[in-house]
Simulated assay, not measured.
Amino acid sequence: MDFIMQNLPQALMVLGIIALIIEVAVLGLSTIILLFFGLSLLITGFSMSIGILPDSLTTALWSNTVVTAILAIGLWKPLKKMQNRVDTKPVTNDFAELTFTLDNDVTEQGLTTYNYSGISWKLKSEEAITAGTRVYVMKKDVGVMWVKPVSQ
């Protein structure tokens, strides 16, 4: 404890960096509370090391309380908005280049199935496609492959 008191600004900055690493690397900015706390520890430790604040546990406690509250009030809405942003672009993966020949007719109802990678997928199409037609997967939903003829 004596070592920490002699090096309080550095200890606060190290704890702040640890809190930020946990928030970003482990929790993926899911709580954002540790972000505010880690930043307040860094700010308090830096302020103590350059002489703005005195080196005492009481000052560290109150400074972290006030700075965490200010950061939470100021950054809560922008960070919450950033968390709730949804990416709407379609994900490309190994289905993007999947082509095969139909064994049965395909319609929009999804009555036809196709076994791929150990899963029985329903096949759907915006237009009726006859059996024997070479098709590619244009998009996929849960358990459903939407297909189009290769010639289109």
Rank of each mutant, 00 (worst) to 15 (best):
G16M: 08
F95R: 01
L41T: 02
V67N: 02
I129Y: 00
L71P: 01
I18H: 03
D103K: 08
W146E: 14
E23C: 12
K77A: 12
G118H: 10
A128D: 11
N84V: 09
M5P: 04
T99A: 04
L102V: 01
M1G: 06
W146S: 04
G38L: 14
S47A: 11
E23A: 10
P78W: 08
T101L: 10
S30L: 09
I43G: 10
I33K: 01
F95Y: 08
S63E: 07
L42V: 02
L98W: 08
G38C: 15
K81C: 07
E127R: 07
L123R: 04
L123I: 06
V86H: 08
T107C: 13
M145I: 02
I17V: 15
E127W: 02
S63Y: 05
T65S: 12
N64P: 05
F3M: 11
E127A: 15
F46P: 07
N104S: 06
D55N: 08
K81V: 05
Q83Y: 06
V66Y: 08
A128V: 14
P149A: 15
G45I: 14
K140P: 00
I70Q: 03
I52D: 14
I119M: 10
S30R: 13
D87G: 10
T65C: 09
V137T: 03
L39G: 08
S125E: 00
N115R: 14
K80G: 00
G143S: 05
L61W: 04
N93F: 12
G110V: 04
E127C: 00
L111A: 13
W62V: 06
P78V: 10
S63D: 01
K148E: 14
Q109D: 15
L71V: 03
V150Q: 10
K89C: 07
G110Y: 09
S47F: 05
G28W: 03
V26C: 12
K148P: 00
T130F: 09
V135G: 00
G132K: 11
